[in-house]
Amino acid sequence: MGTKTILIVDDEQTTRQGLKKTLEIWSAGKYEIMSAADGPEAYELFSKTKIHLLITDICMPEMDGLKLLQNLKIKGYKPVVIIVSGHPNFDYAQEAIRLGVINYLLKPISKQKMIEAVEQALETEVSIERVDFMEKVVDQKLMKIDRRNDHSKFAIKEALTYVNNNLNRQITLKEVADSVYLNASYFSVLFKEQTSLTFSEYITRKRLQIAKTLLLTTDSQIEEIALEVGYQTSKYFIKLFKDYEGITPSKYRKMVNAEEIQI
C-alpha cells in the first residue's frame, strides 16, 4: 500500500497552514498532508487522489463542511472524518454523527490534541480498510460453516481441517472420507448435512476465496494463482471463478484495485 493521505479543509489560511505544518512535522514524511481552502476545492481533490483522513472545518463559504460530507457520501467516497468547529452547535454535531464523523473538535485546538485525534482516526481507518477487504474476499456461505463448526460432528471438523490443509493439490472425496475413517457415500451425505454444501462446492468456494486474497494482495500471474489453489490449468480456474464471481480473475483484480484508487 502507498502513502496515506490526510486532507485539511479550512477557509482560514492561518488555521489551515498551522494544522498542515503541525501534521507534517508529526508525520515526518510518513503521510502526505494536503490542504484545501474550501469545499469545492476539497471535493475536486477527491476525484484525483484517495483521501484516507479528512479534517474539515464546518463554517465555510460556498460549500460548508457538512455539505461537503454529504456530497462525498453521495459519490461513494468514504474517508475517516474529523470535524473542526469554531463554536459548539448541537445540530451540527448531530448531523456530523449521522454522516459518520468520528471526532468533533472545537477551536482553538492544541497541537497535542490534534495529533491524538489524528492518530486515533488513522487507527479507525485501518480497521475500516480491513473490514472492506474482508467483504471483498469472504464467502458468506463459508463464514456460516465456520460459525457453526463448533456444533459439527467430530468427523466433519476433522475433514474440514484435512481439506483446508490440502487445498493446493488434487484431493478427492474418498481420500478425505478415508482420513476420517468413514465410508465415502456416508461421508458425502454427512458432509452436506453438516455444512449445507456438497463436498466439491466447499472445495471450490474455499479455493476461490484464497484465490481472491492472492489476486488482491500479490502480483502473481493468474496461472501461478491457479496452481497455488490446486488447479492444474488456468483455463479451468478462470471458468470456475467466472461461474461463481460473474467476472474473470483479471477483471476482478482490476475492478477492486480501481475501487481502492477511486474511493
Score class of each variant (00 low, 15 high):
Arg169Leu: 12
Leu160Val: 00
Tyr202Cys: 07
Tyr202Met: 07
Glu245Ala: 03
Thr161Cys: 05
Val180Leu: 02
Phe191Tyr: 05
Lys192Phe: 03
Asn168Cys: 14
Ile203Lys: 02
Leu182Lys: 06
Thr195Gly: 04
Ala211Ser: 13
Leu240Tyr: 04
Phe237Glu: 08
Tyr202Ala: 07
Ala159Asp: 02
Arg205Val: 04
Tyr162Cys: 00
Glu158Val: 07
Lys212Ile: 03
Ile171Thr: 06
Ala177Lys: 06
Phe187Asn: 04
Asn183Ser: 09
Lys157Val: 06
Gln209Arg: 15
Leu182Ile: 01
Asp219Thr: 05
Glu224Pro: 07
Ser200Arg: 09
Asn168His: 15
Gln221Glu: 15
Ser179Asp: 01
Ser200Met: 08
Glu223Leu: 12
Ala226Glu: 13
Val229Gln: 05
Lys212Asn: 09
Tyr181Arg: 14
Phe199Ser: 03
Gln221Asn: 14
Lys239Cys: 00
Lys174Arg: 14
Gln170Gly: 13
Ile203Ala: 08
Leu216Asp: 10
Asn166Gly: 08
Val229Arg: 07
Phe241Thr: 02
Lys192Glu: 10
Asn166Pro: 04
Ile238Val: 15
Tyr162Phe: 13
Tyr186Glu: 12
Leu215Thr: 05
Lys174Gly: 08
Leu167Val: 10
Ala159Tyr: 02
Arg205Thr: 08
Ser220Glu: 15
Ala184Arg: 03
Tyr236Glu: 14
Lys174Tyr: 03
Leu197Phe: 09
Gln194Asn: 06
Thr198Phe: 02
Thr218Pro: 10
Glu201Leu: 09
Leu167Phe: 09
Ile247Thr: 14
Leu173Glu: 12
Phe237His: 04
Ser179Asn: 06
Tyr202Val: 00
Val180Asn: 00
Gln209His: 12
Glu223Asn: 13
Ser179Thr: 02
Ile225His: 08
Ile171Asp: 04
Glu175Arg: 07
Leu197Arg: 03
Tyr202Pro: 07
Phe241Tyr: 12
Lys212Ser: 11
Lys192Asn: 10
Ala226Thr: 11
Leu240Phe: 05
Val176Tyr: 01
Thr217Phe: 02
Val189Leu: 15
Tyr236Cys: 09
Thr218Asp: 12
Thr217Cys: 06
Thr213Glu: 09
Ala211Asp: 05
Thr172Asn: 06
Tyr244Lys: 02
Ala211Glu: 07
